[in-house]
Design a protein around this nucleic acid. Structure first.
Lengths: 211, 211, 211, 211
DNA sequence: TATGAATGAGCTTTCATTCAT
DNA sequence: AATGAATGAAAGCTCATTCAT
């Protein structure tokens, strides 16, 4: 991700080339194959560096993985946090979903990686270290919906957490299916994320707003 | 799952004990750890049999995995198909979501396994073989909603596919979070699947029904 | 050692061939090169087996090493214990020293291994497990000398422990020097262990007996 | 050792700090862990310098090791040679053994290192280069005893070499056991080197003197 | 059907060493 | 005189799989 997401921060000092190359290869491979199916050899080959460099810069395969997760989640959270909460609910929802779609479009692996990561229970000791990050985007939604509920915009009998899960879960699940359908096996499911987002917005708003 | 779900289809000849033991251990381990982190040794140790038995009965690790997937998906599909589509939409939705909750309650791994499986893209060559099965529960929803739309119960501007994805995605994502929160790391998300289902129903119905 | 020492216990079941081969190669290599300079690959090459066999039979390199130490020390202790303590001190001393010489002649590595092992302090966590075995031969000497002291044969002002250390230390040190001189680098020290033993006996007896 | 032994030979130019630091760390680590279990990383970390410094000052790990051995043996030999041979045998023996004890007390690793080194046969190509040094202390003893034999003080049937080996071997073996007992695992052998030396002297003198 | 024993290939990791600066 | 970065080679170990019985 990183660069792929258009966050290319600035001209890096040349000595971080190797670290950077490892990092990017790692994210892509971990995202596509998962932790165990990705070998250090895969990573360094793709990055064009030698094996010990991984240990020089990251210490171990697991720490490299954690670094990837942290970095990726941090970036994603930053982007989600940049959405201004001073909008009406329809606009906010649109902005929120657009963010997800943008990330997916620039770097589908990012989403896969995140979703994938969240769905590997036995691996969760590792998750503990990024717990708050992983939960953050959903939390932002929960907070916004709670406020809207307090303002009387959202119905009193609506549970903000469930609502947030619906929005977030539906959106990422839609992207995953889109990715699979496009890259792996044709499910007959070819709806674009943008279209799905529009639908989600409409249904959710219809389901939770007063009147 | 299998036995755990109470779907033990017929009385097995006693000599299938070994096969059965392997099968059950495999499902549980694959579900919790994923394909690569699960070793043949793990499986046979848990099953109390010897390694070559896996090859005698299943041919290879990959084929064992596929067998698990097929069996599991078949059972799950059977259950979903047993939901009578001749109900009103509210009841159908309730029945549909209840089925998922029941499966999760009797055998949480089943859900994990399925979700997990769907989210490992690079593994999808394998998926091709169960493509229609994996997609089937969603398809059932899509069909039901499409009918309701044609009957004028669901609004014309609602996309049945997106709706089905929302229902299914939200429901499984909710269960995953519940599982993680309960078994791995406390996210502060402790809502029971049943409660989440009720909310989903309410929101979806509010969002898609005419009037 | 084992076979080399002429202790070939009996016709083994053929299925222990591999284990046996690993074991013997291990002892010889550990003895000559020490633990760290000996690789699993060295051992299996010498034994004509494949690497995983080491792990199948012994679990790890360290456990293989411990097995060797235990086995070797046990055998050596057995031999030392077979020396009948109902002799006069001169004969006992001769018998005791002869035993060491015999072991050295049949299997020089045995001695090297033992001495070598005793002189790697940082490795001694492992030693804890064979502590009593390693100390046993010296203890036998101590006990005999103590008895002789109580019987008035050995002078009252003589310390049995120091005496035993002198006998044992001098004897093994002599063998080590003999081995080095013969196999590695010519120190100009070519006295045969048997000659050294005779001298040790004479000097010790002269130094500790009454009259 | 070196400094630890208080033999800091001359005022060093400050720029040898690094070399000195490497040297001292190396001796201690080699002594405690042996050659193979000691890594360059261990040494430089302990010394607080960087890895290439080892190669700048010593050329290689092996040459560093040899340097340590040479330096250490040279110092030890110097001390042993400073013992005045113009004494009677009892005093000389006392002085000789005291020297060993002093070295052990100021720097136990020195003794361990030496003994350890002598007992690693496969390493002896390296030994060739310090052959005369390693042998020297024993040689001094041999010479003294030979003279005493020629003077009729020591019995004609006594072999000076064996005698020297007994004295030296017993003394160092005693120290090794003392070290192990104190630092690693309790053998029940807690005799102080000084006490052991006194005993050795008494027994040896009783065993080799005329009358 | 079932198993103990065996294996080729590949894994993560660390080592001593060197290079460019 | 000193260093951060880099490397080839090899270490211990595990994997899915098969063979002989």
């Amino acid at each position: 991700m990183t660069k792929a997401m258009g966050v290319k921060s600035n001209v890096e000092t040349p000595r971080d080339d190797v670290r950077e190359a490892i990092f990017e290869s790692a994210i892509e491979l971990f995202a596509r194959r998962g932790y165990y199916a990705t070998t250090i050899r895969d990573i360094v080959e793709k990055a064009g560096v030698t094996q010990p460099m991984v240990y020089y810069y990251f210490g171990s395969k697991e720490q490299l993985f954690i670094s990837c997760v942290k970095e990726l989640f941090t970036e994603i959270v930053n982007i989600y946090e940049s959405v201004d909460p001073n909008m009406n609910i329809a606009d906010y929802l649109k902005a929120f979903l657009d963010v997800g779609n943008n990330i997916y479009n620039t770097s589908p692996e990012s989403i896969l990686f995140m979703v994938n990561y969240i769905h590997l229970p036995e691996e969760y000791p590792k998750l503990a270290k990024v717990e708050s990050l992983a939960w953050k985007p959903i939390q932002l939604l929960v907070d916004f919906i709670t406020d809207a509920k307090n303002d009387g915009i959202v119905r009193k009998d609506v549970d903000p957490i469930t609502t947030a899960i619906m929005i977030f879960g539906a959106s990422t699940f839609g992207k995953t299916l889109h990715f699979i359908n496009k890259n792996v096996v044709d499910f007959g499911f070819d709806e674009e994320p943008e279209y799905v987002s529009t639908q989600i917005r409409k249904i959710i708003l219809g389901g939770i707003l007063n009147n």
